[in-house]
Design a protein around this nucleic acid. Structure first.
Lengths: 205, 205
DNA sequence: GGAACCATACCGACCGGTTGGTATGGTCGG
DNA sequence: CCGACCATACCAACCGGTCGGTATGGTTCC
C-alpha cells in the first residue's frame, strides 16, 4: 500500500536528513529514523547494512538533493559571472528561514562528530562540501578572470571560504537559536566579495 | 606531583575538553573522560551530578582557559586598535597547528549536537562564543570609531563574523583532515578586515 | 489458468553489549 | 570521629543489530 509514496529507502534517507540535522549523528537512534519514516527497524536493516553506512549514503543523498535545489535557483540566469556569484550569496541568505534544523547543513553537522572516529563518514562529508564548493568556484573563476585576473587569491580558496562562512554562520545560529546572526555574517561575506571585485575606494584616485 | 586531592575536578574538566573535541559530546562516554583523567566514575559523579552538567561546566571551563590564553597573547600590545584586530586574526591563524582536535573549538563542536535537545548546554556554548566575540568587538569598535565611523556595519556583527569564519574553518579542516584550508579562510578574513578599513588606514612599516 | 517456486520488502520480538548513574565502603586530612 | 574524596561493584535502561516469519508480486512449467 506504500506504492504511491516514495520508496522506503528514500523515505529513510529523507528522515535521516531531518533527524540528524536536529539531533546530530551520535544522538540519533536508528529507531528515531524509522519512526520519522514510518517504517520498522527490519526495513531499515534491509536497506542499509549499518547505521554508519546509512550516514555515508545520507551524505550522498544530501548532495543529490541540494545539487538539484541550487541548480534550479534563479541566480544562474545572470549573464555576468560576478552577478551569479553575488546572486548565489543572496540566495544563501534568502533561504535562512524557518526553524534552525531546517536550513542548516547535514554534512557540516555530521563531520564534527565523526571526523576523528569514522573515516568513511568524514570522506563522504568532504566530498559533499568540496563538490559544492567546486560548483561555486566555477563562477568565481570566471569572475576572477574577467574582473580581477591578478588577484592574490584563487577561485577555489574563495569558494571554500564562502562555505566556511556559511558553516560558521550555522553554528552561531544554533548557539543563538536564531537565524539573524547568520544573515549578518552572510552580509559580511557579500560585502567582502564586492570589495574584492570592486575596489572603488579612494585608495587609487 | 600535582596537588594530591586538589585538582581532580579540573583534571576531569581538562580531560573533557580533549575527548569531546575529538569525539563529540554524544559519542563521548563518561568512562572515556574518567580514563583520560586517570580517575574513576565514582570521582566523576562526586564532582558532577550528570554528564549534562559536566558539559555545561566544561563550556565555562573552556571560556576560562581560552580567555587566559588570548589575554596573554602578544597582539594586545599594539597601540592602534586596528593593529590589535589584525594581530588577533594573525594570532588565530598562527595557532592552527598540530592535530585537528587540538586547535578546534569545544563549544562550536558541542552546540551542533545539543542546540535542539539540550538548552542548558546550548546556552553555555552561546555564552562562551558571545563572550569571546564581545572581547574582539571592543577593539573593533575602537578601530571603527577611529578609521570608519560611518561604516554600515556594527562592531558587534563584525566580531561575530570573525567567529563564524573561524568556526566554519574548523569544520572544513575536519572534513579535509588538514589545517591548511582553515588557514586560507583566515587569510580571506584578514583581507576583508583590511579592505573594510583601507581608505583611511595609515600604512606604517 | 494455476500451481509451484522464488525474490524483494517489510515487520517486530529479541539478544547482548553498552552506558549513565547508584550504592557501598574505604582512605585520609583535620 | 567527621566529612570530603575516590574506588569497586553493580543496576536498569537503552540501542545497534539479528532473526524468524509474513505479504506481495513476478516467473516458469504444465
Amino acid at each position: 500500500m506504500n506504492a504511491p509514496t516514495a520508496d522506503s529507502r528514500t523515505r529513510l534517507l529523507d528522515a535521516a536528513l531531518q533527524v540528524i540535522r536536529a539531533r546530530g549523528y551520535s544522538a540519533t537512534r536508528v529507531d528515531d529514523i524509522c519512526a520519522a519514516a514510518g517504517l520498522s527497524k527490519g526495513s531499515f536493516f534491509h536497506h542499509f547494512e549499518s547505521k554508519e553506512q546509512l550516514a555515508v549514503e545520507a551524505a550522498r543523498h544530501w548532495s543529490t538533493v541540494t545539487d538539484a535545489f541550487f541548480a534550479a535557483a534563479p541566480y544562474h540566469r545572470a549573464d555576468d559571472p560576478l552577478q551569479r556569484v553575488l546572486g548565489y550569496i543572496d540566495f544563501r541568505k534568502s533561504i535562512l528561514m524557518g526553524r534552525v534544523p531546517e536550513f542548516t547543513c547535514l554534512v557540516g553537522t555530521m563531520v564534527q562528530e565523526t571526523y576523528d572516529t569514522n573515516p568513511a563518514i568524514r570522506e563522504a562529508c568532504d566530498r559533499s562540501i568540496s563538490g559544492h564548493a567546486s560548483e561555486v568556484a566555477r563562477d568565481i573563476a570566471l569572475a576572477r578572470e574577467k574582473y580581477a585576473p591578478d588577484a592574490p587569491w584563487t577561485a577555489e580558496s574563495l569558494a571554500l571560504h564562502t562555505q566556511a562562512v556559511l558553516q560558521g554562520a550555522f553554528i552561531l545560529a544554533k548557539a543563538r537559536g536564531s537565524a539573524s546572526v547568520a544573515e549578518d555574517s552572510v552580509d559580511h561575506l557579500k560585502r567582502y566579495v564586492e570589495l574584492l571585485f570592486h575596489p572603488n575606494h579612494p585608495k587609487e584616485h
